[in-house]
């Protein structure tokens, strides 16, 4: 069975992004970029399925400009077999990303598509669910465990009250949560090997989809900043302040 893993190039999670002075967007010039952490978990899960003999091929796909090839190479170094870049300079809305991915699913016919639950730049948390809707497939979102059993996949999901397990007919869509696995580091030999693995590039305009924007970014502003408060010396002082100054306890 094939596993398809859509990955996104995003700002490194350690970097605190800044807003441009003209409020048009955030400033990504010279900022360290990386594979979205949830996508890294998705790649790891797919590679483990292959190592366990459940999957036969792992395909990574990314939609973006040429620079996302860097993250596709990372996925290849982590164990994906081949990669597809869908080339566009636009920052596409999730629905359009999902429509492009739908075409890839139709072409590749994977049994599982594993996405991140959320891209840490847009914080949208929606592409996997949209892809599931467009393909008519079931979805196991926010997965902390994925077990393939015959023609079904059991997905344990992190939900507000704890954990929920659902059984999905395959093919199915899974989105990863943080505790699904701990991604490996790419070894130097695997990084070298990844350079020779196939990476196909297809222009987004070749897919025959109307990719017109669904949203308009009006402006981006910095968040309200909090003033650092005071350091108290004793618990007595803390309790006194909470009671009489902040008035949040009685």
């Amino acid at each position: 069975m094939k596993v398809l893993v859509p990955i996104k190039r995003v700002i490194d999670y350690n970097v605190k992004v800044r807003v441009k002075p003209d409020n048009s967007n955030v400033d990504l010039a010279n900022v360290k970029m990386a594979i979205n952490p949830f996508c890294e978990i998705a790649v790891e899960e797919a590679v483990r399925l292959k190592e366990a003999g459940t999957a036969t091929e792992v395909i990574a796909v990314s939609i973006g400009n040429k620079s996302c090839q860097e993250q596709l190479r990372t996925a290849l170094a982590l164990g994906a077999d081949r990669a597809i870049q869908i080339e566009t300079d636009e920052n596409l809305d999730s629905l359009n990303i999902a429509k492009l991915l739908q075409k890839v699913v139709e072409e590749e016919q994977p049994q599982l598509v594993v996405l991140g639950k959320q891209a840490i730049d847009s914080d949208n948390n929606q592409t996997g669910q949209m892809l599931a809707a467009l393909t008519g497939l079931p979805q196991g979102t926010f997965a902390s465990e994925v077990k393939v059993e015959g023609d079904k996949v059991n997905v344990t999901r992190e939900v507000d009250g704890g954990l929920q397990t659902v059984a999905l007919n395959m093919p199915a869509i899974v989105t990863t949560d943080l505790r699904l696995n701990e991604p490996r580091y790419a070894s130097l030999p695997n990084i070298m090997k990844a350079k020779r693995k196939p990476l196909a590039v297809k222009p987004a305009s070749d897919f025959g989809i109307d990719l017109a924007a669904r949203t308009k970014l009006v402006k981006v502003t910095p968040p309200a900043t909090r003033q650092a408060g005071i350091v108290v010396e004793t618990i007595d002082e803390l309790v006194e302040k909470l009671k009489n100054e902040a008035k949040v306890i009685s």
């Binding site: 999730s94 629905l95 948390n125 929606q126 669910q129 949209m130 809707a133 467009l134 926010f142």
Partner: peptide, 23 residues
């Protein structure tokens, strides 16, 4: 934007051919 809404709403959006404004 709790886990139930986050789970099914984007599915609704795509079925309606619209994108979702999250959170």
């Amino acid at each position: 934007a709790l886990t139930t809404g986050k789970n099914f709403m984007p599915r609704v959006a795509a079925l309606l051919d619209v994108t979702q404004i999250s959170d």
